[in-house]
């Protein structure tokens, strides 16, 4: 394989694995920026993945090629509603946000598997979906020499939607009044409250955005990578998205960069055996790379990652 061919093979694969991470990670950026820790991203992705697969299986005959996209939307809504549990417990009831997040993960896995067994006669796994997200060549762009084959040939549309979403997320967070309010609530809720911003309402919105985006992430993962739903479908992607958020310093674009890098590491561990040099590296190093890098990043060895100041602290009006 020539160098160019190798690059043209790796890049779409990295973007392909990165897409669910970018969506979920973007969601966690919004929640944590509002001051709510989101350990429940994994569970929210599970809800999204489960919903998308069940919807896809049920409606594929009716909606044919539109099934995918409708399934993503349905997963988004269901996941958003589910995330309200996190919001109610951790914002209104002032529960420990990490404990609540852990409970969300328990609940999502238990509930989805319970329903899978209920819906599919006791099987622990759904059948494979028929309508799946496919690769395609982007017209015109893929004909550009060098860049075309790398970025625009054999790609998944979802990869580009994810990148677009991250850019929109960045604009919303840094260039709109809403974004400023959301960030202020996560940094100094009392000051924000004094300025007339409804702290708890902003936090509800932050959590729900995360629910919606993690639902999309889970739906994309299920419909492009796993193609069915079982206990092992979402195994760590949610936590990897959290890692991307930290590695990206709670910034949508930084998070996107980290997610693409993690996607790259993930794709190397699966397709790396067919590439020169990479095939000699034991796959365990590629598996642990994202996690080790995150630890180094948060420890300050790769630039300082600082969390929003009011993260994990329920806001009580009038408390200093």
């Amino acid at each position: 394989m020539s160098f160019l061919e190798i690059i043209a093979f790796i890049v779409p694969n990295a973007l392909f694995y990165a897409a669910p991470l970018i969506f979920t990670g973007l969601g966690t950026v919004f929640t944590e920026r509002s001051g709510v820790t989101n350990i429940g991203a994994e569970g929210l992705m599970q809800i999204g993945a489960f919903t998308a697969i069940v919807f896809n299986l049920a409606m594929a005959d009716v909606l044919s090629s539109m099934t995918l996209w409708v399934a993503i939307l349905v997963a988004m809504v269901v996941s958003m509603i589910f995330s309200l549990l996190l919001a109610v417990a951790s914002v209104t009831f002032r529960a420990d946000q990490i404990v609540t997040g852990v409970a969300i993960n328990f609940l999502a896995l238990g509930l989805t598997l319970f329903l899978v067994k209920k819906l599919f006669d006791g099987h622990g796994q759904t059948p494979m979906i028929q309508e799946r997200i496919l690769r395609f060549d982007i017209p015109y762009l893929s004909e550009i020499p060098i860049i075309g084959p790398i970025f625009f040939e054999n790609v998944y549309l979802t990869s580009y939607l994810a990148i677009l979403a991250a850019i929109i997320g960045w604009i919303v967070l840094y260039k709109t009044p809403f974004g400023l309010r959301l960030r202020s609530v996560g940094e100094h809720p009392m000051a924000a409250d004094t300025m007339g911003i409804k702290v708890n309402r902003m936090r509800y919105i932050g959590v729900m955005i995360s629910g919606a985006l993690a639902g999309i992430g889970g739906a994309i993962y299920a419909q492009s990578i796993s193609l069915d739903y079982s206990h092992a479908t979402i195994s760590g992607q949610g936590f990897m998205a959290i890692a991307a958020m930290i590695f990206g310093k709670w910034n949508p674009l930084g998070m996107m960069g980290a997610a693409i890098f993690f996607g790259f590491a993930q794709s190397l561990s699966t397709v790396g055996s067919s590439l020169p040099i990479i095939e000699d590296i034991p796959s365990v190093y590629l598996f642990i790379l994202p996690y080790v890098l995150t630890i180094l990043a948060i420890a300050g060895f790769i630039g300082k990652s600082e969390a929003p100041k009011a993260l994990n602290i329920p806001y009580v009006k009038g408390n200093r």
């Binding site: 609540t100 969300i104 328990f106 609940l107 896995l109 238990g110 319970f114």
Partner: peptide, 16 residues
Amino acid sequence: ELVSVIIAIIIFFVAS
């Protein structure tokens, strides 16, 4: 898996 659901709900209640 019903039991996992029950455990999760118990945790929600305790945490709240």
